[in-house]
């Protein structure tokens, strides 16, 4: 389990991470979500002991990363898959990591096979495509068969096959009972992969809740109507108890009814429609709701800040 306690990182006058309190639990995929520059990578670097916190602590199983006895057997992490000496072969890169933990070379071949790099293992990492680099990064993370996996923006720049592969892999790792912490600025990807969401913006915790709960708190399913003269339709909808908003004169956002019912009412009221569509509950909307309010919602876990 990862625990952040008042974790803070300041670069000069910029507060990159602002007293973050957080716990990441095993057996599920926790998505660390936030726009670029929100402090996701800085947070992960502090978790791994690469950057020194200005204040606060990042603990893994109750200890700072640097005090872990067998770090690679405890945490497997990929911050930047390209971070391999370009002139070193994939196999040598993995072997060096393996030797540091007295992990046999056999395991190197195993992880190469898991990520499908056996054929390319003798080639210089500098010649790898981004997808191959990501696979090599994942292989590095899996080497010590760790309980905790941390991937920073793992699907960045991957083709659809690569994205699907990473998604399936992270899901299966979590199903094996491992702790998976995944950062991304891609909300669609998070919606498909994560069980639990941690949203940060400008270094601060905005939300820490199960994915479903974040979606529920966001705007629900709504029907969008565009009509030049919607007055009669508005009256009919209000009479039925539906929620109606008019973001623009010729536009309605209708809630608490169905798209079919809106169509029928429009027909009955003789209102000409230019558009009738549903707007699904998406993480993207929930996220924008969260960040635009700039309020620090805290849902199920932890105290409100």
């Amino acid at each position: 389990m990862i625990a952040l306690r008042g974790l803070t990182k300041r670069y000069g006058s910029v507060l990159a991470v602002d007293s973050l309190d957080l716990e990441v639990h095993p057996g599920r995929v926790t998505g660390l979500l936030g726009p670029n520059g929100a402090g996701k990578s800085t947070t992960l670097r502090m978790v791994l002991g690469l950057d020194h916190p200005t204040a606060g602590r990042a603990l893994i199983g109750g200890r700072p990363y640097r005090e872990l006895e067998h770090p690679l057997r405890t945490v497997g992490a990929v911050l930047d898959a390209r971070a391999v000496h370009p002139g070193r072969s994939a196999r040598s890169h993995l072997r060096a990591l393996a030797r540091s933990h007295h992990i046999p070379d056999r395991r190197v071949e195993e992880v190469l096979a898991i990520v499908g790099l056996t054929e390319a293992a003798g080639r210089h990492a500098g010649g790898f495509s981004l997808g191959m680099s990501q696979r090599l990064g994942i292989a590095s993370a899996l080497l010590g068969d760790p309980e905790l996996l941390i991937f920073d923006e793992p699907v960045n720049g991957l083709d659809p096959d690569g994205v699907r592969w990473i998604r399936d892999l992270t899901r299966s790792l979590a199903e094996e009972g491992r702790t998976v912490l995944l950062s991304s600025h891609l909300m669609s990807e998070m919606q498909l992969t994560a069980d639990h969401l941690v949203v940060i913006g400008e270094g601060r915790l905005i939300a820490d809740a199960p994915l479903d709960e974040v979606l529920e708190h966001g705007p629900g399913t709504a029907v969008r109507v565009r009509a030049p003269h919607p007055e009669d339709l508005v009256a009919a909808l209000l009479a039925e108890g539906a929620g109606v908003e008019r973001p623009a004169p010729g536009e309605l956002v209708v809630t608490e009814t169905s798209i079919e019912r809106v169509g029928e009412l429009a027909h009955r009221a003789g209102v000409a429609l230019h558009e009738l569509s549903t707007r699904g509950a998406s993480l993207e909307q929930a996220y924008h709701e969260l960040t635009s309010n700039n309020a620090r919602h805290t849902f199920s876990n932890g105290d409100p800040l």
Partner: peptide
């Protein structure tokens, strides 16, 4: 990064 993850 990888080197320090292995030998912090």
């Amino acid at each position: 990064h990888f080197s320090l993850q292995a030998v912090p």
